[in-house]
Structures are given as structure tokens and as C-alpha cells.
């Protein structure tokens, strides 16, 4: 909840990953530069699916 924890739960993002957290970043929604608001270019919403698969060692 907002404001209920003065110290971050981990010292770094890497420490969180090592503790089992997984990290996702959604496609950023960027402001439109004046004069180019209607110009299209690369696909805007890009996500990658990851599937973890057990393999024999």
C-alpha cells in the first residue's frame, strides 16, 4: 500500500530476480512529437511471450 514501507524490499532489481521474482516491461506509451503525431512507423505494442520448459540435464 502506498506509503507503508520506507525501505525497498530488495537492494536491487537483480536481487529481486534472484529471489524468484520475474520482470516484465510493457511497451512504453510515448508522447507524440509535435508535427509528427499522425506518422506511423514501427509496431507500437510489442510483447514477447516466454515459456519455461524443463529439460533433462
Amino acid at each position: 500500500m502506498a506509503g507503508d514501507q520506507d525501505d525497498p524490499p530488495y537492494r536491487s532489481g537483480l536481487a529481486a530476480l534472484r529471489d524468484g521474482w520475474r520482470l516484465f516491461q510493457a511497451s512504453p506509451l510515448l508522447p507524440h512529437y509535435p508535427g509528427t503525431e499522425t506518422q506511423t512507423a514501427y509496431l507500437k505494442y510489442e510483447f514477447w511471450f516466454e515459456q519455461l520448459v524443463e529439460v533433462a540435464s
Partner: peptide, 12 residues
């Protein structure tokens, strides 16, 4: 088309 930018294609 993406939900929003398809309309920009029409404009272009």
C-alpha cells in the same frame, strides 16, 4: 492494424 494507429493509416 493496432486499435489506435489504424486510424492514422487512414489519415496518411
Amino acid at each position: 492494424f493496432e486499435a489506435d494507429t489504424g486510424r492514422l493509416e487512414f489519415i496518411n
